[in-house]
């Protein structure tokens, strides 16, 4: 047993971090706040770097890696606040043509158990829904993005400035079965895990941001990080992030339904509560649009609603206590 990252995994994580820092640094992030349209050039670069084809076999043009590696890449994307349907494109690479290399962008939504919306409706080419339409079997169905938009009520104004949302289309939108190869429970499980990985990345990043601020911001003639009240907030943030990390990484290895539920629950909590504490450590500036931390909080809220909300995961884990 050696739960630590292998050297290859460390290298993969470092490479993903470097790529994202270079292509989606703070300036790009700030620019995206005003204009959240996805950058297709960036998406193709992510495709070329293997973000989507990471787990496809090498014979099929993929990278041939596993779920732990996908978790590390999603964690880095979460750290960088990368917008866009990364999880959907990763899960549907090899299923929907053109997704693996970043040419086509698809959204994935759980119509049966999800929040009833999908992300980046104007940037995606297609919407894939997990649902059980009337008179049809439960499975994955595809709808062209324009038709999905046309068959839905006017879109909500998204709380996350970087993630435009649309309501899922009504029954009038056309749906084509995606094919028999789709394992819906597995898609749901992996989507939950990879979303948890993004939450973990965000939770770690807000610890660093809070600590960085606490080290340099001075009040009463001393860095505020020398005061225990602030120290303890930061320590609590690290404890949340590291506890979530253990759960997320373990779920990536075991792929068990229960461990994925635990990972999602704890990573959602870590992302959202760490973002709130990061706002608190930043004080007045934390409450402004000038600091980036509000973006972590809002994305954290959004992800917490997707692929297994707290009450769903808690009920699932509770049921397992009786089954075990």
């Amino acid at each position: 047993m050696d739960f630590r990252l292998t050297d290859d995994q460390e290298a993969l994580r470092a490479a993903a971090r470097e790529l994202l820092a270079g292509r989606f640094g703070r300036e790009r992030l700030r620019a995206a706040v005003g204009d959240p349209a996805l950058d297709r050039g960036l998406w193709r670069e992510l495709g070329a770097a293997g973000f989507f084809a990471l787990r496809l076999p090498e014979a099929a043009g993929g990278v041939g890696l596993g779920l732990p590696e996908a978790v590390l890449v999603c964690e880095e994307a979460g750290r960088a606040l990368l917008p866009g349907p990364l999880v959907a494109c990763h899960l549907l690479a090899g299923v929907v043509d053109g997704v693996a290399d970043g040419e086509r962008i698809v959204a994935l939504a759980d119509a049966a158990q999800g929040p009833g919306w999908w992300e980046h409706p104007d940037d995606c080419d297609e919407l894939i829904m997990l649902e059980e339409p009337q008179g049809k079997p439960c499975g994955a169905y595809r709808t062209p993005a324009a038709e999905a938009r046309a068959a839905a009520p006017p879109p909500p104004s998204s709380v996350d400035p970087l993630t435009p949302l649309a309501h899922l289309p009504g029954p009038s939108a056309p749906r084509t079965p995606l094919g028999a190869a789709v394992d819906v429970p597995r898609l749901r499980r992996e989507a939950a895990l990879l979303t948890a990985a993004q939450q973990l990345g965000s939770a770690s990043r807000t610890v660093e941001d809070a600590v960085g601020h606490a080290r340099t911001r001075e009040q009463f003639g001393a860095p505020i990080g020398s005061f225990q009240a602030v120290k303890h907030l930061c320590a609590g943030m690290l404890v949340r992030a590291e506890t979530a990390r253990s759960a997320v990484y373990a779920a990536a290895v075991t792929e068990s339904e229960q461990e994925v539920a635990a990972a999602k629950l704890l990573a959602d909590e870590a992302a959202v509560r760490n973002a709130r504490d990061c706002v608190q450590v930043h004080g007045g500036m934390g409450f402004t649009w000038e600091a980036d931390v509000h973006l972590h909080l809002k994305r954290g809220w959004l992800r917490a609603e997707s692929w297994g909300r707290a009450h769903v995961m808690e009920e699932r884990l509770a049921a397992e206590l009786l089954a075990g």
């Binding site: 739960f3 630590r4 253990s246 373990a250 995961m313 009920e315 884990l317």
Partner: peptide
Amino acid sequence: AALRRRLGRLAAEFTALWRLTQWNVSE
């Protein structure tokens, strides 16, 4: 339901603590 959810959350908690132990042992 509130009690069930409370126990479900604790299940996540102790699952993670066991994995955190394995993490620390690996370190």
